[in-house]
Design a protein around this nucleic acid. Structure first.
Lengths: 197, 197
DNA sequence: GGCATTTTGGACTGCACAGTCCACTTTAAA
DNA sequence: TTTAAAGTGGACTGTGCAGTCCAAAATGCC
């Protein structure tokens, strides 16, 4: 797998992006290797050349790719939540992104397909959430140094996850709008300290 | 499909419950009709006798069954959120239920498998959430008549959905604990009115 | 230019698994 | 007790699709 020539790397990239698009459009369950082959102008042997462990291997690469996009699409705000204005811009970006995507959440579809049992999948997902939450916690510390940043960040990530889940389930963006808005509002007006459950 | 004798109804029920258990344990993708046949002591012809449209038909019945359970397991609290003590008992029940289930969320797994494209699946899911949210909104009106009950209920359902999603993704119950606790706390101390986004 | 390695084409294999078929048995109503 | 309908058993079929194989072409290195 090492020693990829530029040409090879380009092909591999083409496969990942082509597969990602197909999966976004039709769902992982409805996309076969032949579809990917056709959409990316490749042959069966190429697919297995770049992903020796087969389809699972490939979907894993697609999942990693999608996870990366999730965070990238929140930039530059996510890395710079240093003012309430930035927080609002971030919130609007997140809501707009999910509103555009509607029910098509490639990442949740992929993980459901691959199964969290696979440690590699789990690593991708938990890693992404960890980075996401770290950025948010940094932002909390910037605007509310007295707050329990980790707790607030946990609440915020949970609100987004819930909004996304409900969006997929009911095609209604309000769960995300309300959940995220209230959570930020909550942070803004008070400063929740660690408390017992 | 009408004219089910008691024996037939029992068999059908046995199939649904047996399939539900298998799916909870192994995930819908890893359960075939032969597994269900073996686990429920039935034959292929019985499966298709009771579910003429095949596997999808059967998984639909399983999904409806699981959706029913989700609400039932929150009773009697969910229908009687008339005091803060009841609210806390409800919260504890919800958290305990998900803590016990850990990553195995049969409903999300099933819907991911069946796809929300199917109107029958969507009906089951949206119907369940609608009933859930209605109960919660009733509870809000009982303890905070001045609050925007629908908005608060939306926030609460979103927090639970997010907690469940993060539990599946990261095997960490704190998202649910914190999200639900903060949302209730938020309701308790203030009374959010409708506000512009 | 020549040799090794990477990249590519596409036919072929294997099988898991949903779905079919028909014969047999049990149930229940008249 | 007869008989029509519901219930049951299990072998069989068809196929969609992941994965294999080998041979040919392009590429890179000395």
């Amino acid at each position: 797998m090492r020693a990829l020539t530029p040409k090879g790397a380009a092909t591999r990239q083409r496969i990942v992006e082509g597969a990602a698009k197909l999966i976004r459009d039709h769902g992982p369950a409805n996309v076969g290797l032949d579809d990917i082959r056709a959409a990316t102008a490749t042959s069966k042997s190429q697919l297995f050349h770049y992903f020796p462990d087969g389809k699972a291997d490939m979907l894993l690469a697609v999942a990693a790719h999608e996870a990366e996009l999730v965070l990238e699409e929140q930039q530059p705000y996510l890395s710079d939540l240093t003012s309430w204005a930035q927080w609002e811009a971030w919130r609007d970006r997140v809501i707009a992104r999910y509103a555009a995507q509607r029910r098509r959440c490639p990442l949740s579809a992929l993980t459901a397909q691959l199964g969290l049992a696979d440690p590699a999948v789990e690593e991708i997902i938990t890693g992404m959430y960890a980075r996401w939450q770290r950025h948010v916690a940094d932002g909390v510390r910037a605007v509310r140094p007295d707050a329990d940043a980790e707790r607030v960040a946990t609440q915020l990530i949970g609100a987004i996850a819930g909004g996304a889940t409900m969006l997929v389930a009911t095609d209604d963006i309000r769960y995300l709008e309300i959940g995220l808005t209230e959570a930020i509002e909550n942070l803004r007006r008070g400063a929740p300290r660690a408390m017992s459950l």
